[in-house]
Design a binder for these strands. Structure first.
Lengths: 233, 233
DNA sequence: GTCTATAACCGGATAGAC
DNA sequence: GTCTATCCGGTTATAGAC
């Protein structure tokens, strides 16, 4: 038993080493220029060994996603405790993702490549990443719940998913942003968080009620099906 | 000169042959399973020759985009002539894209892979596809202009781009849609065209004016920069 | 169970001869 | 314009060492 533990620990160290090396290389040279052979060489392991721990190059990217997600939760926790303004809360969270990914900007581009393919295990919409969504969406729920803005119940139920989508949109924009220090993305975040927050407030207005109902009905409609697809019992 | 013409013509024939073969194969077996070697073999040309006409496998996809775009314009022209309802006009156009792409559903997934990568020449947001946008967006402008809905001038200027984005969103949804006969996408289109049309009507309401102004200002802001990036003089 | 070494397969891409 | 030969890198397979 001590033996297994030791080997397991060694295995974990090796796994971590490979991942660290891969992320370094991704950061330095992007996705394509980082060959599996290079990762193995730099980590001082055999090529076959990297495949022992990561079934494919894309699985290394999964690990990257998880990193970002964890970091986002950790790094926003403190700031969210004392903030009650919805717009500000949203901005804190969205800015955090961008800041965390910043060193990997180039890499993130090629990365989203696989993300857009529904048959890729890395697609954020596919069943394989149900867990990633499960981990990511609650943070957006917390953004809403911790704010002083009043949100009608029916909307509150769907809002986290919507905000998660919004966040994905911002990331997609940032990936294409070539402006110095990503000022365009900054601007986008500042304006859109304001717009989103206002929209949420306005949503309870009587004039907008039919629109809101219709939108929510659509979402519920689509959601049911998505869940039954993603979570076959 | 007759000589050049002949060779040119022959070149065009070969090019068309390769493209046709490639699209057939894409339709039959998807992107990955269609190897460049297979295309060459089936088209009865040498592997190197396909690279003579299409710099990369991805460039074959460019050709696919153009096909879809052209077909969309042709196939909606008649229906648009007599229709003045904004919602219906929008639905006609969006449905057309989906219908045209239908045989290529599997293929379209892997296709959007490259589309999401900003450094890929296929990214619909990148400078390389400025032309694709130039060709695609006017149809959405026509959707608005030909409708009886009154649209304030400031909004009218930005609307085509927004609707184009909306259309891209629908396509993205469809790509991930695994429901039989894509009923979920059908539903999405029916509901969202309604929602979009209502939003456009509501946009002129006084309550929504600040929101609209702010949104348009953001768009204009970002647009200026995008154009200066995409079209360096 | 963890790891090395090595060879091989496959497919996208390129070079250079004809 | 077209071909053959070759490179390169993701991935797989094997055989064996600790």
């Amino acid at each position: 038993m001590a033996g297994t533990e030791t080997t397991t620990r060694k295995g974990e160290r090796t796994r971590a080493l490979i991942l660290e090396t891969a992320l370094d290389l991704f950061r330095e040279r992007g996705y394509d220029a980082t060959t599996m052979r290079l990762i193995a060489e730099r980590a001082d392991v055999a090529l076959g060994n990297t495949y022992y721990y990561f079934r494919s190059k894309e699985h290394l990217v999964q690990a990257f996603y998880e990193r970002v997600d964890d970091a986002q939760r950790v790094e926003t926790a403190a700031a969210l405790v004392h903030e009650t303004d919805l717009k500000t809360r949203l901005r804190i969270v969205v800015r955090a993702v961008i800041e965390i990914m910043q060193p990997y900007h180039r890499f993130a581009g090629s990365l989203f490549r696989s993300a857009a393919d529904p048959r890729s295990p890395l697609s954020p919409f596919g069943p394989e990443s149900t867990e990633a969504r499960r981990k990511g969406i609650p943070l957006l729920a917390e953004v809403v719940d911790g704010s002083k803005t009043w949100v009608p119940d029916d909307l509150r139920a769907e809002l986290p998913r919507l905000l998660w989508l919004y966040q994905m949109g911002v990331v997609l924009f940032w990936i294409h942003d070539r402006s110095p220090e990503y000022v365009r993305t900054e601007r986008l975040i500042d304006h859109t968080t304001e717009i989103v927050a206002r929209l949420i407030s306005l949503a309870s207005l009587p004039v907008l009620r039919p629109l809101r109902r219709r939108t929510l009905r659509l979402l519920a409609d689509l959601q049911v099906n998505e869940l039954s697809l993603s979570n076959p019992v």
